[in-house]
């Protein structure tokens, strides 16, 4: 193989001047992290609500929640992104649509990608939450009822706190997924991490260095996420419960 390795490329100046390729990568990293974290927040909020609704003894609500899950997890992520970015602004009330289209392109890209990733991941979070709630003994529900709790109180105090602890490990993989899936935002032009790698290749013709660097950065993000979720898992452990130790 006749390839000219040049690791020093990251420190060389970009054509636009005043900055290095390494700085480009870190800018991309920042967008990836911001996008993923804000989408994760949406995914958790919406996911818990939808997951709970899927289990309530009320036909209308559970059907609605099921429809949400099936729609969002059965349309390819990329198609969803295009829908949010290209189609949704046309469907909004005109004033909103115009406001969106007149905003900074970066804002448009970021908002569309954030909502898209958030609501897509919410469907997956909802399934974990539902499974967590359904894994609890039926008697927990009965005990809550027998003490006079109302339906919302049973969820608030009995079912959700326990289900949330149970689903921390599966949620970790959803959290990891959201960082990896955030790379789709490159298709609508958001200059996140994988986009910057592409740019680096275009400008420097050093694809190996560029993609190795990006790979390492994605891995680094996910190692941090795994570490943090592990800490969360330990801190929320229930003493005497399976895996909770004494």
């Amino acid at each position: 193989m006749n390839y000219n390795w040049n690791w020093g490329v990251f420190l060389s100046e970009t054509p636009s001047g005043g900055t290095t390729y390494l700085a480009w990568l870190f800018e991309g990293l920042q967008w990836t992290v911001m996008l993923s974290l804000s989408a994760w927040l949406i995914a958790l909020l919406v996911g818990f609500v939808i997951g709970v609704l899927r289990t309530v003894p009320h036909r209308g609500w559970s059907t609605l929640a099921t429809a949400y899950v099936e729609i969002f997890r059965n349309i390819p992520l990329l198609v969803q992104l295009f829908l949010w970015y290209f189609v949704m602004p046309e469907l909004l009330p005109e004033a909103w649509g115009m406001a969106f289209k007149q905003s900074h392109p970066l804002t448009q890209q970021f908002l569309a990608a954030m909502v898209c990733l958030g609501l897509f991941t919410a469907a997956r979070v909802a399934e974990q939450v539902r499974a967590g709630i359904e894994s609890l003994p039926k008697g927990q529900w009965a005990a809550g009822q027998a003490l006079g709790f109302t339906l919302p109180q049973i969820y608030r105090y009995v079912l959700v706190p326990m289900a949330a602890r149970i689903v921390v490990p599966p949620l970790t993989s959803e959290f990891l997924n959201i960082f990896k899936n955030s790379a789709v935002a490159t298709t609508i032009g958001l200059i996140e991490l994988s986009r910057q790698a592409q740019q680096l290749v275009d400008y420097t013709a050093q694809p190996y260095e560029a993609f190795i660097a990006v790979t390492v950065l994605y891995l680094a993000i996910n190692v941090v996420v795994m570490f943090l979720m592990r800490r969360l898992e330990q801190r929320t452990r229930v003493p005497g419960f399976i895996g909770g130790g004494q």
């Binding site: 003994p137 008697g139 927990q140 005990a143 027998a146 006079g148 009995v158 326990m162 419960f241």
Partner: peptide, 14 residues
């Protein structure tokens, strides 16, 4: 105000 005790206790584990 009707107390109930279950076969499997059903204390809240968390």
């Amino acid at each position: 105000h009707v107390g109930m005790v279950f076969q499997h206790f059903e204390l809240f584990p968390h």
